[in-house]
């Protein structure tokens, strides 16, 4: 068996085990799952652990619905980099005759979606996207910059049998906005903190330079640029493969990309830089189940103490 088929088999086996134990609930589409009470409890406990490490620094909490406006989406530049991952919300906007045509196509099992029109709503691609225009609208930042805490469902169109690559999942993030020096210090702080948090949970890991999945040939250059400038680091955990470990946390320096996109200003009028730490909470739960077993009551006491202590 080649390596690709082997990986697919390992992913399918882990997915099937999670479903058999009732932790994930299949919904008929790759990458779309319900979660059991136990799965959710692990995620809630992990989120509380993150807050214990980062909540004392006065981050402003913002919680958004899992969507952003089409205008914010367009301004973000997401389509330049990741057109293949975006999910836009479309709805029926026709009259009675159009409705009849829709029903006829539906009954005939033909494609009824062509008449759907784009709404002003786009699914959130990353938890931090909605906050930048909100912060920008407040005017220049104070001298100490800004620190925010967001948590949101996200969508990325990449159907996969890998349970660690869901189409809809949640990201917890801390986001720093300020000068380049401020946001770089924040990113290093969270590389250290994130490593400490995950180590305390008895999970094998390593941190490495990474790139985002930019689209096409232009994307290959954007990815090479991102790596050359070490803009992105990931904390990687073997879940279904040791050779291709899964990114559970990412530490991102956006330079002034979002600062330019939305006119974020530092206290002295310069374009603000931004950075974020993102926790892929489903992936972290899956890493815990993978390394400590599918029965949370049988997890090592030290791990349980971290989460339930």
């Amino acid at each position: 068996m080649n390596a690709h088929a082997e990986l697919g088999q390992a992913q399918a086996a882990f997915r099937d085990a999670l479903i058999a134990h009732g932790l994930l609930i299949p919904m008929g589409v790759d990458g779309l799952y319900g979660r059991s009470g136990t799965f959710e409890e692990v995620i809630e406990r992990f989120n509380a652990l993150v807050t214990r490490h980062g909540g004392h620094e006065g981050a402003e909490i913002m919680r958004f619905p899992p969507s952003i406006s089409r205008q914010v989406f367009e301004e973000s530049g997401y389509l330049k980099s990741f057109p293949q991952l975006a999910g836009t919300v479309h709805s029926f906007m026709g009259n009675d005759r159009d409705h009849q045509a829709l029903i006829e196509k539906l009954l005939a099992k033909e494609d009824w979606t062509a008449g759907q029109k784009a709404t002003q709503v786009v699914l959130t691609p990353a938890a931090c996207y909605p906050l930048y225009p909100v912060v920008a609208a407040r005017g220049p930042l104070p001298a100490e910059g800004a620190l925010l805490d967001v948590y949101s469902w996200c969508f990325r169109h990449e159907p996969s049998i890998d349970p660690a690559r869901m189409q809809q999942f949640r990201q917890r993030e801390y986001v720093r906005i300020g000068t380049a020096a401020q946001v770089m210090a924040f990113r290093q702080l969270w590389i250290d903190r994130g490593t400490a948090i995950m180590s305390s949970l008895g999970i094998p890991l390593h941190v490495d330079v990474a790139n985002d999945p930019f689209f096409g040939r232009a994307g290959r250059m954007l990815a090479a640029n991102q790596r050359d400038q070490t803009l992105k680091f990931e904390l990687l955990v073997p879940i279904t493969s040791s050779e291709k470990p899964t990114a559970c946390l990412s530490f991102n320096y956006h330079q002034d990309h979002f600062g330019h996109a939305w006119g974020l200003r530092t206290h002295d009028g310069g374009t603000a830089h931004t950075a974020c730490v993102g926790f892929g909470v489903e992936r972290i739960a899956l890493a815990l189940f993978r390394h400590h077993g599918l029965d949370v009551k049988a997890w090592p006491q030290a791990v349980r103490d971290q989460l339930w202590g």
Binding site: G77, A218, M221, L222, N225
Partner: peptide, 10 residues
């Protein structure tokens, strides 16, 4: 910028 480099390449 990175995105301008893409346009330059094209």
């Amino acid at each position: 910028t990175s995105h301008a480099t893409v346009n330059l390449m094209l």
